Amino acid sequence: MDKPTFVYVTYIATTLDKLWEALTSEAFTQQYWGDGQLQSDWEVGSSVQHINPDGESDWQGEVLQSEPPQRLAYTFQLPNETELQPSRVRFELEQSGTTVKLTLIHDRLDTQSCLNVSRRWTVSLSYLKRLLEIEDGLAWVA
């Protein structure tokens, strides 16, 4: 039986480079990841982790693919689920006129995890879109 996959597609009025920066910049990720931030050098094989405001890691993974500004993929694993195979997060960015089509694919999930990540991703990516499309957000990333 195949494991569930969460797919989310949105169009953001921005550029490929600005969206890539928003996905990979520690300071910018803090604005839409619920006060935490992603930390990585985004090189294939490097670690990636979400650090909460207390300085602790909420989840961690390994960068699987990094092709700026079009593809980014990493594993995703919660600290209490180390006996399970990590899930995988993939971002695909594609310029579409004056917008960028952002496709998020989070796969290798179990049913409960799929429900949990679908809520979290929907909120986080909605905030990301809003930040990039408001004038202050665009100025920050420029």
Rank of each mutant, 00 (worst) to 15 (best):
S46D: 06
T99V: 10
L102D: 06
K18G: 07
R108H: 12
T122K: 09
P4L: 03
E83R: 03
W33A: 10
D136L: 15
V44K: 15
P79L: 02
D35I: 10
W59D: 04
I12H: 02
H106P: 08
L38I: 07
D136M: 11
H50V: 09
T82I: 11
V9H: 01
P4E: 02
V7Y: 04
P69H: 00
P4A: 06
Q37I: 09
V7C: 05
L131V: 00
T122R: 04
I105N: 06
V100Q: 03
A73L: 08
S40M: 10
E43M: 14
T5Y: 00
P79C: 07
Q112D: 15
V48D: 01
F28V: 04
Q30D: 04
L23H: 06
P86V: 09
L16W: 04
S124N: 04
T5A: 07
S47E: 08
L132S: 01
G45C: 09
A13C: 13
D54N: 15
D35H: 15
S46Y: 13
L104Q: 12
S25P: 03
T5P: 01
T15W: 01
L38Q: 05
D136G: 05
F28K: 09
Q60V: 07
W140A: 12
L132V: 00
Q49M: 14
L16M: 04
L115Y: 10
P53L: 12
Q60A: 13
D17F: 07
G97V: 11
Q49G: 12
L128T: 03
S124W: 00
K101D: 01
V9F: 04
T111L: 13
V117N: 02
V141A: 02
N116F: 09
D41S: 09
D41E: 15
N116A: 12
Y11N: 07
G34Q: 12
D110T: 15
L115V: 11
L115Q: 11
V7L: 08
T82Q: 14
D58C: 10
S87A: 10
R119F: 15
E62G: 06
V117F: 06
T111P: 08
N116P: 04
W140C: 07
W121S: 01
Q65V: 15
A27I: 12
S124K: 02
V123Y: 14
L109W: 01
S40C: 11
T98A: 13
T14L: 05
I12S: 03
Q60D: 10
T82K: 15
K3G: 06
L138M: 05
E26Q: 13
V89M: 14
A73V: 03
F76V: 01
W20F: 04
V123H: 13
